[in-house]
Design a protein around this nucleic acid. Structure first.
Lengths: 259, 259
DNA sequence: TAGTGGTCTAGACCACATC
DNA sequence: ATGTGGTCTAGACCACTAA
């Protein structure tokens, strides 16, 4: 694994202070952070595994432990890393019980936990429609994978998702793999394709149920549904998934915290 | 203003380490943080004003500057304080241009900024219904203020809000004060009543337009609307506002970031 | 017992805003 | 020139986990 040499190529001094008067000054810990993101992005540090200890990283990068610490602090608040006192610092993963369904904000009105069941309706390779291509940063006409599925809570269908993925990084994804995998879909993407969702932006609307969605959610056409359009991003804010969800909110709600 | 004496009453040592083996151990910076929240809550430090410098606080609390710094860091990420390099640290406020509409997540689909207009429909003092009383932590039958208003963006009505406030802390709130005030409503609450919204929880649903809401938003009954139920909290997670908003999302959407 | 992250200190220097 | 927050260091000790 490469070490401090990289840092010397950066606009930081060998061991102490940063340069005096520079345009685009960047603190040391930000540079360390960027180096660490590279390790994550390259897959040198894999999801669920521990990264080197703070003291070892300090030695490797030739900075003090406090500086490494500040870099890790930020990566932890961005949910790229997880600190565990006494054990070490780990690469965040979607494949854990504790982090399961990190992105699904739906909650039962009565607060009860609910067993989730998935049913895959469809999984096919298509040419990306113009709007999907634009969102995913593809050229129009590029291949994409379309997945349709239903989530049921306590046996009743509540969520209908239409998911679009760029075909290239997800080569080999099939309906069988999807239904065979235990755990959240993002866990599969992570372990099978090395694609890691780290952030997402959602646009939420109220729409009227119609067509296939009304059928699958077992509601009359015209019933108000929550429309959740999610763009999932990987490292460097690279878009890797467009998901259009329709939620039946008659007994559930989307929960959000403002601060 | 009281000083370090308070700290000595806490389970922290006079100047250095914390106690060796204690149940419910709390780091020094957390204790400092709690003391600072008290100053905010008591109104000693007022919205928009600067708090004492890090070095002065370190002297007052008899801890190192780094410890004060960590306490301020957390209060800043919780949006209670705002740091401004070279100027000082300030108490967060809703009455600023930069922070205006901090809690309104609605955005035009085309991304254009939109002039917002308010129209107050109603403002009356009532007995709180059971559900409102429960949410606000009142006894059922306690007095509450009900406000109804419409927000228009580019001249078209988009949001219908029904707002419930506990009557006691908002004694003297009238429709005239509401319509006379420039700037966000939370700014008025802050300056006029000393009530500061610092956090909120929202439950979002899709519902069908009906009655007064349909009229005021100029849509046919049955049109899907976004229902946003917001519980606003003050210091110590004390609930101080229940707001039920109906959003017409035909040309706007609710924007959310997941991470 | 050893190793990890978590806290705390003291001091140096830098970047930024204001006067 | 002064004062503020921002960065960086070096070292001490504490709390937690696992072997």
């Amino acid at each position: 694994m490469d070490d401090g040499v990289l840092l010397c190529c950066n606009p930081a001094m060998s061991s102490a202070v940063s340069e005096p008067a520079s345009p685009a000054f960047s603190p040391l810990y930000q540079q360390i952070k960027a180096l660490m993101v590279r390790e994550l992005q390259a897959g040198t540090w894999r999801p669920g595994e521990a990264i080197p200890s703070e003291t070892e990283l300090a030695l490797r990068f030739k900075v003090s432990q406090g500086t490494v610490r500040k870099a890790i602090d930020e990566l932890a608040t961005e949910n790229l890393l997880v600190r565990r006192q006494g054990r070490g610092t780990f690469v965040a993963t979607h494949a854990e019980q504790t982090t399961q369904y990190r992105f699904l904000r739906l909650q039962a009105d009565d607060g009860e936990a609910s067993g989730t069941q998935r049913q895959f309706i469809d999984c096919r390779r298509l040419r990306a429609p113009a709007d999907v291509a634009r969102a995913l940063g593809l050229r129009s006409g590029d291949a994409a994978i379309q997945i349709k599925r239903v989530l049921s809570l306590r046996g009743a269908p509540v969520v209908f998702d239409e998911i679009w993925l760029p075909a290239a990084p997800f080569k080999g994804l099939t309906a069988e793999k999807l239904s065979g995998y235990r755990g959240p879909m993002y866990g599969l993407f992570e372990s099978e394709f090395g694609v890691r969702m780290i952030r997402a932006e959602e646009k939420i609307r109220a729409v009227a149920a119609e067509g296939q969605a009304a059928e699958l959610l077992a509601v009359s056409p015209g019933t108000p549904l929550l429309s959740v359009e999610r763009l999932s991003l990987s490292y460097g804010d690279k878009p890797v998934e467009l998901r259009r969800g329709l939620y039946n909110t008659s007994a559930h709600h989307y929960r959000n915290e403002l601060s």
